[in-house]
């Protein structure tokens, strides 16, 4: 479970040109939720997602991840939690082009032994229906296929939460629908899915919508 209490994020707080990206954000996401965070460009939704994913720190407030106060964790522990419990999907896929699909999906499995690693990665790839692409290079794939690889990588560690930042932003509507169905299926399997989007069509497929504007929640 994720719980944010009065979270603020100020960039360059000690400088003249400081910018407040988030202001008093409070909400909770329960296990198994399928949630969309929507807002215009620059509203702070990606910043919020990064804070939830522990890729960014917050200036003030409290953030509890499975009842653990994130602000009290050191960087190593945060990395471990991220590796084990959170899967990230980015709009631009964040894949390494010169790696094969299998190699990309295996990246988060670094502490695991090689044979088991491959087995787990192939299982995740199969789940996304791209097993035949396993040995292809990412640069040879279409946008939809790349996003499936990104999702396979996000779920390979069997995390409880999947965070997606504009996952359909670079895709055509048909492929976007396919990708959304993948997220829906993962949510049905019990994973918590949080999607940041500015596309209402995508947000409407989620069970819950949190709308933010100028760094504040306007509806949830």
């Amino acid at each position: 479970m994720i719980e944010l209490k009065n979270i603020t994020k100020i960039y360059n707080s000690k400088k003249q040109y400081c910018f407040q990206a988030l202001n008093g954000i409070s909400f909770a996401v329960n296990d198994g939720d399928f949630c969309a965070i929507i807002g215009k460009s620059g509203s702070g939704k990606s910043t919020l997602l990064h804070i939830i994913g522990m890729l960014d720190t917050f200036s003030s407030g409290e953030y509890f991840f499975d009842k653990t106060d994130v602000s009290k964790l050191n960087e190593r522990t945060v990395s471990k939690i991220r590796a084990r419990s959170i899967g990230f999907v980015k709009q631009d896929f964040a894949l390494i082009d010169e790696y094969s699909v299998l190699d990309n999906v295996m990246i988060p499995l670094y502490p695991i032994r090689s044979a088991e690693k491959k087995k787990k990665a192939l299982s995740a790839i199969e789940k996304l229906g791209i097993l035949k692409l396993a040995n292809k290079y990412v640069s040879q794939l279409s946008g939809g296929e790349k996003q499936r690889v990104a999702i396979a990588r996000a779920i390979v560690n069997e995390p409880s939460i999947i965070l997606a930042d504009e996952p359909t932003g670079s895709l055509d509507s048909k492929t976007a629908a396919d990708i959304m169905s993948v997220f829906k299926r993962l949510n049905d399997e019990g994973k918590t899915v949080i999607i940041v989007t500015h596309d209402m069509g995508v947000a409407n497929q989620c069970e819950r919508i949190i709308e933010i504007s100028d760094g504040e929640i306007v509806s949830q």
Partner: peptide
């Protein structure tokens, strides 16, 4: 590559 590693749960030290 480093950015991707970070996304995938690697630490700064890693």
């Amino acid at each position: 590559r480093n950015a991707v590693l970070w996304i995938c749960g690697y630490s700064r030290a890693g």
